[in-house]
Design a protein around this nucleic acid. Structure first.
Lengths: 349, 349
DNA sequence: CTGAAAGCGCTTACAG
DNA sequence: CTGAAAGCGCTTACAG
């Protein structure tokens, strides 16, 4: 960065630290046995006398020995690592799912390797290749844009669990929350309150979750004998900004509505601000429902009615599923239920 | 889970998939050279004729070869992996930093291994041990509770970059945002608007960031000749809930204040709801300032004035720093600046 | 029950 | 420039 001579000089001062942790051999010598024996004791693949066991354990403690993961991985052909294609590691919504994955894996000695797919097919593809190169034992694709075909093809090389779509194939398991049902709960709630003109802001038009939620919206209307009006649907971007923009569009279009269902909470946050800017009050002028039930949603003004999906649980289930798949078992797991959480952003029209 | 015979049966049907990716040897044979040569070509440690190079590249493409990371790690003594002790992988604030780390590392062929420390000394400790066992090349401790002594001690085994505190030691580099300055910006802004009775809600009492921000608050008051009143300080928990509770306490205590500075945005969200519940309006009755400038803060009602710290940039810098440290260079990096973002939650008293 | 040996897939001095 | 060989640290049939 600065002058070359300078960086060279400081390199001389503090060179790279040697990684000189203890090895199996050192422990074995200390305990007076062979490396094989130590290995077997550590892995519990043998019964030994208490004395020996104690001696080995003492040596392990003394050296603070922990088996080298790379060596073990190489010998075993597995790494106790699961690659996780996270779409956006900083998403307020998905984060909880990643946490669930982490928790679910840890119980079994596995650790997740997270990489961001950025909702971008190419990036997700790169992640998966990288994971395979790193020899992960399995991969969890937490939502995303990858084509079903590609996923199936990778599943021939490595076990894969994918969330957010329905897909069956050898070595592949999918787990999906019932988006359509969730959307129906939201819209039915509005209908029960007496609303007839209910607008909807979707995420992106081609996203499976968005399609499912739109489907639920339409079905709920239909069940109530309310005609679907395309003029009441606007497209956002899953974020606050899109919600703001889409709501302004809806408002400008002069379409009349007394309630607004948003494809997710972030969109609803944006919608809220748009309504505020136009001098409209929630829920007095417009009832508002989101989807996801983000932690913050209970603290909005007013607290937001939303559809809760336990994404954390979905993460845990994904972890279980991939472990079962790796173990050669076909997972039998059904996704966590969705549930409507009624707060103060909805009322009678 | 279910009946034993059942799970055994399905195991028979779809056993664990073999990981049979190509090896160096296969590529070498295909290209008609030795494994050494292929290795050298891949690593660019040799100049070869174009013909040979093409032959090898063709073989690599044909087999879709990617070097086995465990083997390479074992041979090289490094893994191209950096362990990251994230406190809460699902935090709306820190997530952006993790993303920055990921981006910063990728540019150099490194990948992060994230684990959650949960703001819990024991967990953080476990993470670090696990990382060392996995042979990571370096560790980034992204904030947390670990004692300085422990950190210094680990730094003898592996290079460490830690954020959120100031600490110097061999093999260790720390990076800290200027919390005190940020807090001063916030409080000065309130003072300039004409506020004299300014309350503060802190996070946890012993957290370094909280202490620094409290310090900034006090200094700004002092600079303006306003006496510090302990009755105007309440303790939250960094989350909405604590902000809500602390604000109610403040309100119930009958302490008079026209402005409220919160240790972070999530706390401010909670405060906002508390004020609303008490029939107070922001900013008419109380001006409100947060800290962090979460993406959602621009979409609060009203949009929240906050102190922005570029946590994403901090993540990137941490990545650069750890790579430099590993390379034996002493990092020269100064943390990203803080900046006040004025929105609509503050006004004259 | 336990040890010596081979092997996991790569890299890199060491010789040609 | 290129190959054969040794070695990274572990696990696990294979013999005793």
């Amino acid at each position: 960065m600065t002058s070359k001579s300078d960086s060279t000089r400081s390199a001389g001062k503090s060179g790279p630290r040697p990684r000189q942790s203890a090895t199996l051999r050192m422990v074995a010598r200390e305990a007076g046995v062979s490396a094989s024996t130590v290995s077997r004791i550590i892995n519990g693949t043998v019964n030994v006398s208490d004395g020996l066991k104690h001696a080995v354990e003492a040596a392990i403690t003394k050296f603070n020995f922990r088996p080298n993961a790379a060596a073990r991985g190489l010998a075993l052909g597995k790494t106790l690592t699961i690659g996780v294609v996270a779409q956006a590691i900083d998403s307020p919504f998905y984060g909880e799912g990643l946490r669930g994955i982490e928790a679910g894996l840890r119980q079994h000695g596995y650790a997740p390797l997270f990489m961001s797919g950025n909702w971008h097919e190419e990036d997700e593809d790169r992640c998966i290749r990288e994971f395979i190169a790193r020899g992960v034992d399995g991969i969890i694709v937490f939502a995303g844009q990858l084509s079903d075909a590609k996923l199936k093809s990778y599943a021939k090389e490595v076990s894969i669990v994918v969330t957010g779509r329905r897909l069956r194939a050898q070595g592949l398991f999918s787990l999906q929350i019932d988006d359509q049902h969730g959307a129906m709960l939201a819209v039915q709630h509005l209908i029960e309150l007496g609303h007839r003109r209910i607008a909807f802001i979707t995420g992106s038009e081609n996203h499976p979750d968005a399609i499912e939620r739109l489907g639920g919206y339409r079905r709920a209307l239909e069940n109530a004998g309310i005609a679907f009006d395309p003029g009441l649907v606007a497209v956002g971007d899953w974020h606050e900004e899109g919600g703001l923009r889409a709501t302004l569009e809806l408002l400008d279009s002069k379409a009349k509505f007394t309630a607004l269902f948003c494809v997710n909470d972030q969109t609803a946050y944006g919608a809220c601000l748009a309504l505020f800017r136009k001098g409209l009050s929630v829920p007095r002028d417009v009832s508002l429902v989101g989807f996801d039930d983000l932690p913050s949603s209970a603290y909005r003004l007013p607290p937001l009615t939303s559809v809760r999906q336990s994404i954390g649980e979905l993460g845990e289930q994904s972890a279980q599923a991939i472990l079962q798949l790796i173990g050669g078992r076909r997972p039998r797991i059904s996704p966590p239920p969705v549930e409507l959480v009624v707060r103060e952003s909805t009322s009678h029209p």
